[in-house]
Design a binder for these strands. Structure first.
Lengths: 162, 162
DNA sequence: CCGATAATGTTCAATAATGAACAATAAAGT
DNA sequence: ACTTTATTGTTCATTATTGAACATTATCGG
């Protein structure tokens, strides 16, 4: 309709909408944080996806590959590719469940726990550094906004499946 | 210093820190938005990276591959892989600059402009839908926080280079 | 003007992530 | 009990992204 009509309201382009601009900033910050974290983790010879796995094993001992994949929002096949690497490095263990012979239960080895703590320290330091100057109340608003977005997107996903 | 000191404040784990939790929410929302956008763009046969390129050509006619890569926070080689695809589809044009024979200046073809508008409409709708219920003032706080983070991370990047 | 240095784009090998197809096992319906 | 359906994990082909090495062209210092 009013596509090139830039008379009074000058919101003809997406990047003029506050919500759009806001989200673009979120996406850029995320991308940049990911890259920075990748470099910061290089000395430990792991990458962000590995850290995500390790942290979840740290928190949820005995988790399943399926559950892990769901938490990380990735496909099961991805776990089938990454977990054997970590296992060969002696960071994690995969043991078959007795009751359900399909599932493999995951846990950290002692050296895996150590590495995870080191990596979490790096990540925490990076986040702290990046969010210096951001008041806690702003952080809470950000968290709330993101949780709401996550809820909406997950709901939409389930709708589409059915 | 006080790393394992869990006396009164119970902030022993990263995920107990408000800033950490806040950032994790940001990362998850981003990942989810990316996946949702990927599906929403499927009918147009493009993916988020292509859309990022198209939008920037829409905004900045005659931009260089180098400049584009910098804006998108990706490597030059990535542009060398993606742009020929879009060119073959007749969505963009690459013309050599007369003054500087190294650079290729990028622009959208008419069909590229049409596709870009359609894709931007999809993206805008998705963002609007995801941010319904988020007050504009919260959006502004989010945007501010993210801009600050971007600034800090970019500064750190430049430091590391030198 | 000319050699050194920098910038632009391309190519290539390596790595990651995905979805589809598959095998093994469990659960449900009859 | 047994057939059907679902779930879990793996494999494979495909695509995306990266960084390093390279060729070409600009720029700078002498």
């Amino acid at each position: 309709m009013n596509k090139n009509q830039v008379t009074s309201a000058s919101t003809a382009f997406p990047w003029d909408h506050p919500r759009f601009r806001s989200w673009i900033a979120v996406a850029r910050a995320c991308q940049l944080m990911q890259q920075t974290l990748t470099r910061a983790l290089a000395p430990l010879d792991i990458k962000p996806p590995h850290l995500d796995i390790l942290v979840n094993l740290y928190r949820f001992e005995g988790i399943t590959q399926q559950e892990l994949a769901r938490k990380l929002l990735v496909g099961r096949s991805n776990m089938s590719m990454l977990l054997p690497q970590l296992e060969k490095r002696g960071l994690i263990e995969r043991r078959g469940d007795r009751k359900d012979k399909r599932v493999l239960r995951l846990s950290l080895t002692p050296s895996g726990q150590t590495l995870t703590q080191e990596a979490m320290a790096i990540q925490t330091a990076l986040i702290e550094k990046s969010l210096t100057g951001a008041p806690i109340e702003d952080c809470l608003i950000v968290a709330e906004s993101m949780e709401r977005i996550i809820g909406i997107l997950l709901a939409g996903e389930n709708d589409a499946e059915e």
